Simulated scan of single mutants.
Amino acid sequence: MTETMAHLTLAFGLLGNVVSFMVFLAPIPTFYKVYKKKSTEGFQSVPYVVGLFSAMLWIYYALLKTNVLLLITINAVGCFIETFYICFFLFYAPKKARMESLKLIILLIVFGFGSTVGLTQFLASGVTRGVIVGWICLVFSLCVFVAPLGVLRQVIKTKSVEYMPILLSVALTLSAVMWFFYGLLLKDFNIAIPNVLGFTFGIIQMILYFMYKNKKPIVNEKMLDFDAKKYPIQEMEEKKIQDKIDHQNIDIVKLSALISSEILPVVTKLEENRHDVGDHVAVEPQAYPKVPNHIIEVTA
């Protein structure tokens, strides 16, 4: 029986390593986009710094235990990958984003992890040290698993799964299952308990994905209505142009009538009464040239 339990523990540990490794590789398409554009644009370094901090905590916890070697292997790989992501991000990030990332690294990695190691080494000993670090890992893991609640709220509100990567959700759910059974078989509840929450949220994410994947997002309809109300200028201009086209013939007729009834008699009278003031010589009235018929007689 003990041998069977050991084999199951090893199997779930190995499967947990494989699935977690796939999760660590999930951001590669994101960093490929960063490499192509030579800019981090709107991407943030928070997930990678938090991931590095979590991996370092679990390695420290595993070093205080005696039977969790597979927990060390995967988190060591995670530390290497997350460090690579952070360095890559810092290389292409603008100055403001780079400074914010460095502040977060100092806060979590230097101050947070350094304080955890220092305080537990000097203020605790033996089994107590492992218990304290285990509780720290448990609480931090619960916070990490609660983070996707913002995504779930957005999906329910907008009825859109555009920003929910289903493959990553599936991978995280499988990872939570593997590590839950690994911790359960080892009777290490600091490993098992956080993964219960991770499994639960993973299932909820997949349910919401299949509920809303074929539905039209509400946000798009609102944006269309908003744009229609905010930007009516083009429609007004089109209406004005159409009105001008409709009244073009009427305007031409009015102009022709004005020329024939008012302007021409005045001009003719002025020509007849014009005198050379300097020489006081009268000028014979001249007939005003006839206006071509195609100007006066215009029909709609």
Rank of each mutant, 00 (worst) to 15 (best):
H7S: 13
L197P: 07
N220E: 02
V161T: 13
G13Y: 01
V277S: 12
K216C: 05
W135C: 07
C143M: 09
N293C: 12
A55K: 03
K239T: 14
T2Y: 05
D251M: 15
A76W: 01
Y209E: 11
F226L: 13
V291W: 04
T9I: 15
N249P: 11
K187P: 01
K65S: 10
E162A: 06
M22S: 11
K159E: 14
K222P: 03
Q121L: 09
I252D: 04
Q242H: 11
H280C: 05
H280S: 05
W135A: 03
V151R: 08
F145S: 07
G51I: 00
V267D: 06
E238D: 09
K159D: 10
A171V: 01
A124H: 04
R129D: 02
E100A: 11
V49R: 00
I218T: 10
S141W: 12
S54Q: 02
F31I: 06
K215A: 07
E262W: 12
I204M: 08
I105C: 03
K230P: 02
A300R: 14
M1F: 01
E238N: 05
K215T: 14
I191D: 00
H294P: 10
I207S: 06
E221W: 11
P285A: 09
I106Y: 07
F88C: 14
T66Q: 10
K157A: 12
F210G: 02
Y61M: 08
G16F: 00
Y209M: 08
P165F: 00
F189E: 05
L174D: 04
V133D: 02
V177E: 09
S261I: 09
F181A: 04
M99E: 11
T30M: 06
E100L: 12
G78L: 01
V196E: 00
F189V: 08
A147R: 05
F89Y: 13
D279L: 13
L52N: 00
Q248L: 11
G118P: 06
A6G: 03
F24P: 01
I156L: 15
L70G: 03
F111Q: 03
T158M: 05
I74K: 09
I203S: 14
M206I: 15
S175N: 15
N214K: 12
E100F: 01
Q121I: 14
L104F: 07
K38H: 14
